[in-house]
């Protein structure tokens, strides 16, 4: 069975900006939530395989402006605090400005 991957962000005229979370690798420990300097991450209950699972997600407020929210962490290097905090390597950034 394939892991369920969630993408938060958008593509616009200036490039593509996504925080990508593997919900099967995520154990809901919340370390990334604590490490995020912008408080952009949250723990959310998702319904996966008939079970409720607590996983990290980008908060609704920040999904719409993620390019600006995350820019100070240099997401293009994929070494943002959230990425490094995750022991299960569940988080990655897809960051390509045109």
């Amino acid at each position: 069975m394939k892991n369920m991957i969630t993408h938060y962000g958008y593509t616009d005229g200036s490039g593509e900006y996504y925080i990508v979370i593997d919900t099967d690798r995520c154990n809901g420990c919340g370390k990334c939530v604590k490490e995020c300097p912008q408080s952009a991450l949250q723990l959310e209950t998702m319904f996966i395989d008939l079970e409720d699972k607590t996983v990290a997600s980008v908060s609704e407020e920040h999904r719409k402006k993620i390019k600006y929210t995350c820019s100070s962490c240099k997401p293009e290097r994929n070494s943002a605090p959230c990425v490094l905090a995750c022991e299960g390597k569940a988080i990655r950034c897809v960051w390509n400005s045109r």
């Binding site: 369920m4 969630t6 999904r63």
Partner: peptide, 16 residues
């Protein structure tokens, strides 16, 4: 989704 309708990847665009 897979053949059972289980989500394997998603992207929500709610910028506006």
């Amino acid at each position: 989704a897979d053949e059972t309708g289980r989500v394997v990847s998603f992207l929500m665009n709610d910028k506006c």
